[in-house]
Amino acid sequence: MENTVLERSIVIFVNVVFSEGVRILSTGWGVLNHINETTPEGLQEIFATNLFGHFVMVRELEDCLGKAQETQIIWTSSQNANSDDFSYTDVQHRNGREPYSSSKYATDVVSVAFNDRLNKKGIYSVTTCPGLVMSNLTLGILPAWVWFLVMPFIFFMRLFVGSLTCSAYNAAEALIYVTKQKCESLNPRIKYCSLCSVLGRPYVGEEKLNIDEKDADDLYNQLETLYQGFKLMYRNSKTITTQGHVTEMRNGFKARSEDELDNEAHNGYQNGIH
């Protein structure tokens, strides 16, 4: 009889915990293996979720930020981020096995790139790490009852691995810390990490980011090219939803001006098309 997914997970966990226990507990190495599917737009799903969607949001809001007062962009990275799992020739991680690690390392790189570009506008970018938190991610590794059984061991391991924050309250420590600091006092090449003592007291640690400026520019330019391609595609495409059905209309819009598209959209809403 074949082993169940649960049995295989437990066997793997037990076999490697003694040889790679600290590394696994501190970074999630080897267990945060996601199925990297493709979005309808043709992007790798984890890349789009963890990185590209955030990049697009910042670029779309850029003109609104940093005007009245200084603005912070705070990225949630991970200690699972590993430069060995990321390639500048495969930023979407189409050909790798650690898409989560790749996307989180890319998050660190993009944070540095944004900070270098936007400081003159009063916009500051910094990255944080929540540590190991009990969430849907961890429940995807092992079921809740197994985590309940090993929790005393995890609390003990905080003597050696401070990133075992476990609760959302402890995990938010770094986020709260950076929001209370003056923007210019934060180092964009430091990842601010939520840590927890063996007694459960949360505190903040620092992890140096060894990111080259040219590499940061390279990734930013690749994402910017992809972003501009999406803007062009959707500018030449009009999507209207009628009674819950989405109809995509591409032909005939390429030669029209933006004013004509706006007028048509307005008239559509006036006529009850939503």
Rank of each mutant, 00 (worst) to 15 (best):
M134R: 02
K182L: 07
M1I: 07
D212H: 12
D63G: 03
V91T: 13
K121W: 02
G66M: 09
D63E: 09
G30I: 01
Q222K: 15
H93Y: 12
D262K: 15
T128V: 10
N15P: 00
F153N: 13
I273A: 13
A113Y: 05
Y234P: 02
F55Y: 13
L132V: 01
I176E: 12
T76E: 11
V126W: 08
P202K: 02
R235W: 03
N95Y: 13
G252M: 04
N170H: 06
Y177F: 14
E260G: 01
I73Y: 14
Y124W: 11
C129F: 04
M57Q: 12
V5R: 15
S237E: 09
N136D: 04
M57H: 14
F230A: 03
A265V: 05
P130E: 06
K191W: 00
F148S: 02
V109Y: 13
R97D: 09
Q69R: 15
C193G: 00
E258D: 12
V133R: 04
Y234K: 08
Y220L: 04
V22H: 14
L164Q: 07
V17C: 11
V133L: 05
G200C: 01
S9P: 02
T38A: 02
G200L: 00
Q72A: 14
A174M: 01
N221D: 14
A113C: 08
V11E: 15
E207F: 06
V246I: 09
Y177M: 04
P130R: 05
Y124L: 06
G28W: 05
C129D: 09
T138V: 01
L209H: 07
N170M: 00
M134P: 00
S111E: 03
V110T: 07
Y220M: 03
L43Q: 08
V161C: 07
A144N: 00
P202T: 00
